[in-house]
Amino acid sequence: MGYRLQGKTALITGSTSNIGRGVALAYARESAHVVVSGRSAERGAQVVEEIRAAGGRADFVAADLDGSAAASQALADDARAVLGGQVDILVNNAGIFPAQGTLATDEATFDRVFAVNVKAPFFLTAALVPGMVEAGGGAVINLGSWAVRQGLPQGVAYSASKGSLETLTRAWSAEFGPRGVRVNAISPGVVLDIDPEEAGSHPAGVMMKGTPYGSTGTPDAIGQAAVYLGSDESSFVHGTVLDVDGGRTTVAVIAA
């Protein structure tokens, strides 16, 4: 066990699988008390059991973040109760990705994407930041996407929603930073929770061809970045979007 997050508590939304699970495991390894959150109690229990078996501290809180202020407030209240009153770090990870283009996206789908990906973290952050301020400080970490900076013909509403969340990152940094709450974001590349040897043949793997890394990333890679942004090591980091994408958005590899 490490100690980079010792004494800190963390709520990680959508942490029953993939990136969220990777963040939860990484936080627990660094001695944070973690609230695993999501819709599936079964998968949540598995993550909690994995953390506890490794000597970490974790509890599961069920939540269906539908974008309503009430659902976000309920999760904030339940997390604080489990953690003994205080959430030091909030990781806004939960999100949905309908793959449709614009013409195939109906109004109900569009509204749900923005409800889950933007409204839910908006009201959850609003519910938890006052407690962080009162406690003397805290950190909010949002999960953006490489799709924000590269136009894609699919998942158009998703890309727009993640762009909104990255904009909120900067606005919240300006709003809450002077009060002791650091706000930053991580922009992951294509991340899969599978055996790295299988990543090359996965349909999503093609999107990481031509990058310096050359393949899909792992949830743990995002988890390590989240540890940095949640720890005191990043005390001078405010309002940034950290690209953890294998070079997907910044580098083109030219074949010789």
Rank of each mutant, 00 (worst) to 15 (best):
R4Y: 01
S15K: 05
G20K: 04
A26G: 00
Y27E: 04
S31I: 01
V34T: 05
V34L: 06
V35H: 04
S40A: 12
V48M: 02
V48L: 06
G55S: 12
A58K: 10
D59F: 03
F60Y: 12
A71Y: 02
L75W: 04
D78L: 05
A79V: 13
R80H: 03
L83V: 07
L83E: 09
Q86M: 14
F97T: 07
A99M: 12
G101E: 08
T102G: 00
T105S: 12
F114Y: 13
V116M: 09
V116K: 10
V116G: 14
N117E: 02
T125G: 15
T125A: 08
T125E: 01
A126I: 02
P130C: 09
G131H: 12
V133L: 11
V140F: 02
I141Q: 09
I141Y: 14
V148F: 04
V148D: 10
G155P: 10
A157G: 07
S161W: 01
G163E: 10
R170K: 13
S173A: 15
P178Q: 00
R179M: 02
V183Q: 01
P188I: 04
L192H: 04
P196G: 04
P196V: 09
P196C: 04
A199M: 11
G200S: 13
G200N: 10
H202D: 15
A204Q: 12
T211Y: 03
G217Q: 06
T218N: 01
T218H: 03
V227M: 06
L229Y: 10
G230L: 00
S231V: 02
E233Q: 08
G239T: 03
G239Y: 00
D245A: 15
R248W: 11
T249K: 12
I254S: 06
